[in-house]
């Protein structure tokens, strides 16, 4: 079981490197370094890679609390904010790529997309709901908000549901990958419901968030 110092000095930097890896690969592909190639439709490849990693890291964030309770160890919680912020970084870049590279900053078209294309509507909603979570992720905000912080950060659940739904809705036909994420999400949420019920039976005050 890693101690506080080891987590801060070793494991967190490693986690940052791991989270930055997909971004680094994308950069290598863009610059066509060695065997890395972005392919014939770079703008969309960037947009989709960023979105996928945003979703994967979001699910990883949601896995930390179950992991803590399953292992009986506290260390997974130390990575929750790190993973959540990296997820937000990828989602933000995903949105910027769509806005700038795919849609050429044409506000009219983007507003039409958001209004007329349901998968873009819910994707945008998920992104906007992530903003307050990222802003209030600091220790200062957590202290200031007190118990309201926990309530606010439950927004992560609708965000994750909307994000999976967004992905499921946009694929043309092959829903295998989005279904995989939906399954993981349902497991993570289902686990919480079960754990909460169990916790209620034994100690009504304690429940996982």
């Amino acid at each position: 079981m890693p101690g506080q110092v080891q987590i801060r000095r070793v494991w967190k930097p490693l986690a940052h490197v791991a989270c930055a890896l997909p971004l680094a690969v994308l950069l290598l592909e863009l610059l066509a370094v060695g065997p890395f190639r972005i392919g014939p439709n770079p703008a969309l490849a960037i947009r989709d890679t960023l979105g996928t990693w945003g979703l994967r890291l979001l699910l990883a964030t949601l896995a930390m609390t179950p992991l803590r309770l399953a292992t009986g160890q506290a260390w997974p919680l130390a990575f929750r904010r790190l993973l959540g912020l990296w997820s937000f970084a990828y989602v933000l870049l995903h949105f910027v790529t769509y806005f700038v590279l795919d849609r050429g900053i044409e506000l009219g078209i983007i507003l039409e997309d958001v209004a007329k294309r349901p998968y873009i509507t819910i994707g945008t909603a998920a992104f906007l709901l992530m903003v307050p979570l990222a802003v209030t992720s600091t220790a200062g905000w957590r202290r200031r908000l007190g118990p309201r912080w926990t309530r606010l950060h439950r927004l992560v659940y609708p965000v994750a549901i909307l994000a999976c739904w967004h992905y499921y809705w946009l694929v043309k036909r092959d829903v295998r990958e989005p279904l995989l994420y939906v399954t993981v999400l349902l497991m993570l949420l289902g686990w919480r419901l079960v754990a909460r019920r169990a916790a209620r039976r034994t100690a009504p005050a304690a429940r996982p968030d």
Partner: peptide, 13 residues
């Protein structure tokens, strides 16, 4: 979107 590899295509509308 007209398919085109290369960095130049990134900003092509």
């Amino acid at each position: 979107r007209v398919v085109s590899s290369g960095l130049g295509s990134l900003l092509a509308s």
